[in-house]
Design a protein around this nucleic acid. Sequence first.
DNA 1: GTCCATGTTCTTTA
DNA 2: CTAAAGAACATGGA
Length: 285
Amino acid sequence: MPELPEVQTVVTTLRPLIVGRVIAGVNLLRTDIVRPGGVDLPSRLLGRRIRAVDRRGKRILITLDDRGRFYVHLGMTGQLTVESPEAAVRPHTHLVLEFGESACLRFRDPRRFGGVFWIGADSDAATGLGPEPLDLKPSDLATRLAKTRRAVKNALLDQRVVAGLGNIYVDEALFEARVHPLALACELTPEEVRRLNSAIKKVLRRAIRHRGSTLRDYMDAEGAAGEAQKLHRVYGSEGKPCRSCGSPVQRIVLGGRSTHFCPSCQMRARVRRAKRRLSGRAPGP
DNA sequence: GTCCATGTTCTTTA
DNA sequence: CTAAAGAACATGGA
């Protein structure tokens, strides 16, 4: 579930609940969710006060009062919630931080694609990540896309290109920008890159305003589901009429992932030129 | 039983 | 050698 809007929503709901609190107990129920493998997480957390909660890409970064840091990655099914210690511990809960009588922080993740990553005080929390899409300038995006011959959809899913997009919001952004997912990243026109840059921000901001998309597992730190799934235009809408032109939304598999788009609104530039020729209309400027 | 799933990383191929 | 495609990871729901 967790792409940038979901992770941002977890961070903003989590922050006021845990910043300033002292970790009075650590219960690590599965050690293999901690990375790197050898780190003794409980001893690094016990007795520490939480100083900050931030987001970088899809990483939830937690800073302690001794400058030690770790991040939680939610993978596909991860949840990070603040609950009463009295509340039943659900299956697949892997880590619990106790703050006292009133609250505890629980990390659960059935598929275990996520994890808890200790990074210490000095190493870079953003290693392997490209820039934040909400700060991205069209020229930055253009430079990055120009470096690869992959399909633009695959390039945008690569966290080293831009950090935070996933399968849902890439499809939504490409639709908003009217760019075909199979278009080669390095062959987009400057105008298409500009539209794509704006579309990414628009789609992400709108999803954040609606507290992220809940399709199945996603919830914020208070256990609340998001509403942004109601705004999806193409994701999960195979066969439904395009909101813009009415053509059926198509689903293809790209890089092993479902990819949804409108074949009429998101025509590849080359195909669009050919169709104009066939229909005898004058070519555009 | 089958297929599918909001992600990342390791392996194989070109 | 590098870039890109594919497989693998683990669990649950339709």
